[in-house]
Design a binder for these strands. Structure first.
Lengths: 168, 168
DNA sequence: TTTTATTTTCAATAAATTTTGAAAATAAAA
DNA sequence: TTTTATTTTCAAAATTTATTGAAAATAAAA
């Protein structure tokens, strides 16, 4: 396979893959493009390469910077801004985990804690099942939380360390 | 907080949470409702409880059955079909992991393997970065895959059973 | 300062996804 | 068998989400 074809396929598949994970397809494609670009790119480069409008690139690029997956670069002598992606996949993954944990998992855990304190007749089977379910999810979430914490703190030998910690 | 309010909040929050993970909001809400229902429900029950159309409930219910998170139940003497959700959160999680691994991770890993075999000038920095990125993701994916495999194979009493072995 | 290049915003539009509901299909009862 | 209950399908409508592109804002150069 030629590089040009491989690039195309990588970018489009990565976008499709990401969309199964609640991530905007275009954002994932821009990220993919930057991940395989040896040099920083401008917004115009991305516009041209992916056939996207200026506004679209600008908004998704800002989102990538917001997630700390991409950083702005000032190149001396150049007027345009350049963008470059963190290439270390381990760092990329831990960064995503960190952010999603903070934005999604932590608030959900907090909510579950308040829901567990629901009041009512302790003999009501509906109440029993509700607290059992919420409690079960909370417990599982706490375990997952620990595991993700460990992953984020761990280095490349994370598999061993996370497995060791996971069921504690 | 009253049970009725807590239920409402749980169902709606769970739906919102799930939509960040590529899961249909309604499907997640139906799942949430079944998770906190002590008894099996019919499609009409779900329609009424969540104010959804018959078609919507039917399609999402089938999807839940397809994911093996919910099962159809025949109750003797009842003409309607009943549905019940697996309540063990550990089993729910491993089932989701198993399915998503099969549907998303495995195909992506396979694709990355073919993309790594891209041909071209070995001194081209674009080619170098491409293979480095694809290789890095593949390596990370393989590690994650191993971890998920381990999780799916382990059961809730993993820690207990290994501890017990020590004392035999 | 003015001019020019570049980035950002956001209302309008387009695209994708979800939801509806009535008709068709299926299955159980009479 | 026919009737009745229930489930399934799917084209159309509604809703949500993504994208555009031109105008406004910003920043650099002249």
């Amino acid at each position: 396979m030629k590089l040009a074809d491989a690039k195309q396929q990588f970018i489009s598949s990565w976008g499709a893959f990401a969309s199964h994970w609640g991530i905007n397809k275009t954002m994932a494609q821009i990220h993919a493009l930057l991940l395989i670009s040896p040099d920083p790119l401008t917004q115009d480069d991305v516009m041209e390469e992916l056939s996207l409008s200026r506004g679209n690139v600008n908004m998704n690029m800002r989102e990538l910077v917001d997630w700390a997956l991409v950083s702005r670069m000032i190149i001396p002598g150049e007027r345009k801004e350049f963008f470059t992606a963190e290439k270390d996949i381990w760092k990329v993954a831990t960064q995503i985990i960190k952010e999603r944990k903070r934005r999604e998992l932590d608030p959900m855990m907090k909510l579950l804690a308040t829901l567990e304190a629901v009041e009512g007749d302790v003999d009501d089977k509906h109440l029993k099942q509700f607290t059992a379910t919420v409690g079960g999810i909370k417990k599982f979430g706490a375990q997952a939380d620990k595991m993700l914490e460990a992953m984020v703190k761990a280095d490349e030998h994370w598999l061993l360390s996370t497995l060791l910690r996971f069921f504690k």
